[in-house]
Write a protein that binds this DNA or RNA. Structure first.
Lengths: 341, 341
DNA sequence: GGTGGGTGCTATACCGGTTTAGTGGACCGT
DNA sequence: ACGGTCCACTAAACCGGTATAGCACCCACC
């Protein structure tokens, strides 16, 4: 099959390429009747712009990039990203922008990929996830002047635009839920501490607990199943173990639940479990997990909208998302009766 | 920052663009010394080809496409795809080919996307997953003459190339494992029946069971957690329930395990469970699931290699992968003692 | 010493769009 | 009747590569 070009349209319409281009781009320079005729022909022969030609001509690639540098093994079990991509896709589907998606070995490879994409003019902008404290990627992206939307934390974005969820409120919701059930000593199993949102969550979690007048502490894990199980085992072995644990993602929550059960700890009788991410995983285990649910698809869509604006020349700026909603399920209950406190 | 072009190189080297192009592409037409000088300059100023210019000139997009049309909710919990993408990526990283990844609403949207990609010359080829019986996508891709690698089943690919795993052997392994443990009546919870690999698996599973002289039947589900749980409940409610169940993916296996446990059925004491996909999920539940494990990353890499060859003009042809390996874990054991047979 | 052939390079067309400068004609006012 | 505008459109350049035709030069050969 042969792909029609504007030259084909021009020939049929008896005008030049330029006239066709004007008509197709709503540019002045053609009469309404001619414009109509051209559009008609274009539609009829199924013309679509050649993305390479357009990219070469107007200097924009017509694509955004997304790199994730978590190991493939973890990624697979992480529902967050697929949903994010679905959301991004939804917002991009309308226009002429595609999504380049890559999983990278490590942060170094990710930065090299940004440079390559930039040098090859492959993308007009990128989505950046998993922002870390003093993240070296920021310098690279700023140097390249590549429009960027940070999906995650607004602080530390170094002037880049961001789309972020209100983790303070989410932390407050989780703590309030547990406090209301009567818990006085709770813990949280976190993701990597050098991630911005881990820091934010930790701050908010500790403060919410303090305000609620209950004991709290956080132990560090790494979003993996093993990490979640290990942290759980360690917490349960403490002299005065917590009566509730909040996990930073669903994978660790499910894995922590398993570890607790294996240790003979009844959930929710002896231990309440809350997951900071909701996915089908939370509902298929027994007991089903109470979770902080957020609309990740909408999140991705908003990030994409922001990046579209940015690439079109809009000023950088961040956008907050509504906070997560706490969805109570079977994994949280009042703590076991104790002697005191 | 300004991106250097071959014109910049040409100017510095005191030659024309054409000479530079010859040198950079290992084309004859320049002397070894000139070539050396040009390459040196290119390296020095960090030249990279503008992908749009190259695409426009040689008619290839420099990208492959991958569309998945399962709902975002399911996708997230499906580790398979992320690993596949990681594998594809690894094989593509060397060259100048990028990956366009999209999740589509449905099959219709997927086909429209193929047409759009084709019309816009966005991709040089696509990976197609979840091949169905009489899949309408095949006709579209053939009509567009878009190089395609079907990731899944070789039959039914309608002349398209495919990369496929040996599900016959895998089925045999699972059945043999259960037969050896002493099971005489087993069942399988399948994915959608109109998927090619479901059909293949069913045929192989039934035949392997027949050859092993044990009863077997399959019930249809849909890869979702709910589907897996529902099918399990139904199986356990049969007059003579199976003593072992094989699930077509890990999500259904985990969910089926939960359903069995909720129904008060001991695993593996009263029911053995095997998952036809191995991921971290299988290891984090209790008991850990016996699973058919395959190297999905290598699978993706091979698919990418095949598509690279195809796009370079090679003849269509399929490639078989090594069969899955059965990894025994705690979820399979001898069946409970029975009166007879 | 003219012919033939290869080498090393230049000039230029081309891919398919966008954009700018230029042009012919209708229309306007006076 | 004539100069000035505006309109609708054309011609051509341009983006950054690749590919082809052609040219100058050198060497070999009979």
């Amino acid at each position: 099959m042969k792909r029609p070009t504007i030259a084909d349209i021009a020939q049929r319409a008896g005008v030049t390429k330029a006239a066709v281009s004007f008509a197709l781009n709503n540019q002045p320079g053609v009469s309404p009747t001619t414009r109509q005729r051209i559009l008609e022909i274009a539609r009829e022969i199924g013309w679509q712009p050649n993305s390479a030609a357009r990219a070469l001509s107007d200097g924009r690639a017509g694509a955004f990039g997304l790199v994730i540098d978590r190991p493939a093994g973890i990624l697979g079990a992480e529902p967050f990203f697929m949903q994010l991509i679905a959301g991004i896709q939804g917002a991009l589907a309308e226009g002429h922008t595609a999504l380049l998606f890559t999983v990278a070995e490590d942060r170094q490879a990710e930065m090299e990929l940004y440079r390559t994409w930039w040098a090859q003019r492959r993308v007009d902008g990128v989505f950046m996830v998993d922002l870390r404290i003093d993240d070296p990627r920021i310098a690279v992206l700023r140097e390249l002047a590549l429009p960027t939307v940070v999906v995650g934390a607004p602080e530390g974005s170094g002037g880049l635009s961001a789309v972020w969820t209100d983790d303070e409120t989410a932390a407050r919701l989780a703590v309030a839920h547990l406090a209301k059930l009567g818990h006085r000593r709770i813990a949280r199993v976190t993701g990597m501490t050098d991630l911005w949102h881990t820091r934010i969550r930790t701050g908010a979690f500790m403060q919410a607990a303090s305000e609620a007048g209950i004991e709290a502490h956080c132990v560090t894990a790494d979003y993996t199943a093993e990490g979640g199980a290990g942290a759980t085992t360690a917490l349960l072995a403490e002299a005065r173990p917590p009566t509730a644990i909040v996990y930073d993602n669903d994978l660790m929550a499910v894995s922590g639940l398993g570890a607790a059960q294996r240790a003979g700890v009844d959930v929710p009788g002896e231990l309440s479990v809350v997951s900071w991410d909701d996915s089908v995983l939370c509902q298929l285990v027994h007991p089903a997990l109470t979770a902080l649910r957020r609309d990740v698809v909408a999140y991705g869509a908003h990030a994409a909208q922001r990046l579209l604006e940015l690439a079109a020349g809009a000023a950088p700026g961040s956008r907050g998302e509504p906070p997560a909603v706490l969805t109570p399920r079977a994994s949280t209950a009042p703590p076991p009766a104790r002697r005191h406190r």
